Amino acid sequence: NQASVVANQLIPINTALTLVMMRSEVVTPVGIPAEDIPRLVSMQVNRAVPLGTTLMPDMVRGYA
């Protein structure tokens, strides 16, 4: 089972991601792999991401 990136807090739209906003968790469906967390830092979300939501590739500008 692969860990995915999950929002550690509410992340408002257009917010640049920081390490404290994300955690890794084994979830279904699988989202962005946890090993990509360092790559996600400073990328912006293109929608509001509620606490506990799995980050999907289409939620992060420039990721996919």
Score class of each variant (00 low, 15 high):
L10Y: 12
S4D: 00
R61T: 15
Q44E: 13
M22F: 08
R23C: 03
V27F: 02
Q2H: 10
R61L: 08
I11S: 00
R61A: 07
P29Y: 04
G62F: 07
N46F: 05
T15P: 00
L51V: 09
T53K: 13
E25A: 12
I11M: 05
Q44P: 10
S24H: 08
P50G: 14
I11D: 01
I11H: 00
I13W: 09
G31H: 02
P50K: 06
A16E: 10
A48G: 05
S24R: 12
G31Q: 03
S42M: 14
L10N: 11
T18S: 06
V30F: 11
V60I: 15
P29H: 05
S4Y: 04
S24L: 13
N14R: 07
M59P: 01
V60Y: 01
N46C: 04
M56G: 04
S42E: 13
V41L: 14
M43E: 04
V26L: 12
V60Q: 00
D58Y: 10
T54H: 03
I13E: 12
V49M: 06
I32F: 03
V49F: 02
V41R: 06
T54V: 11
V27D: 02
L40M: 07
L19D: 10
M21K: 03
V5D: 00
T15D: 04
R47L: 07
N8E: 11
D58V: 09
I11Q: 01
L17V: 04
L40P: 00
P38H: 14
N14E: 13
A16M: 15
L19V: 06
L17M: 09
S24W: 09
V26D: 07
P12Q: 11
N14Y: 13
Q44S: 11
R47D: 10
V6A: 03
P57W: 07
P29T: 06
N46T: 11
R23Q: 05
D58M: 08
R61S: 12
R47W: 09
G52H: 11
V41I: 15
S42N: 10
I13N: 11
L10P: 09
V5Q: 01
I13S: 10
N46R: 11
L19P: 09
I32Q: 01
P33F: 07
P57K: 06
V30E: 05
D58K: 08
Q9V: 15
V6N: 02
E25N: 07
M22W: 02
A48M: 10
L19I: 14
V60E: 01
